[in-house]
């Protein structure tokens, strides 16, 4: 077990960078995450203005798990939220949600 944790600690920075890139692709892709439809964020062209810009995300969401829950199903916190429940409705896979969350948390 300790060995595994050690390995993860060494490997994870590389995995993270890769996940962030995959997350960005999903966030910009019109037919997948399409976060840009509503949120402005760095590097994204023609963003919508329905929802808050994605900036200073670590300040707004110190806990990654809270941000993940928001992406998975925003109606848990706000039943009237218009944000699609990416996890609950299976719009993205659990792995893809992690990638998007890694990307968004890096903004």
């Amino acid at each position: 077990m300790k060995k595994v944790l050690f390995l993860l600690a060494v490997v994870s920075p590389i995995v993270m960078a890769d996940d962030i890139n995959k997350g960005r692709e999903l966030a910009f892709d019109r037919s997948r995450g399409n976060c840009l439809a509503c949120h402005m964020m760095e590097g994204g062209e023609m963003p919508g203005n329905v929802a808050p810009p994605l900036i200073a995300m670590k300040t707004r969401f110190p806990e990654r798990s809270v941000l993940r829950e928001q992406v998975w199903d925003a109606t848990i916190r706000n039943p009237e939220s218009v944000m699609p429940p990416y996890g609950r409705h299976g719009v993205l896979t659990e792995e893809e949600i992690d990638q998007v969350v890694d990307f968004v948390h890096s903004l």
Partner: peptide, 17 residues
């Protein structure tokens, strides 16, 4: 998970892209 009212009332006037 959108109703008609979500787009055309709650966030009416805003931009989707």
């Amino acid at each position: 998970n959108f109703s008609c009212s979500h787009c055309h009332m709650q966030i009416v006037g805003s931009q989707l892209r």
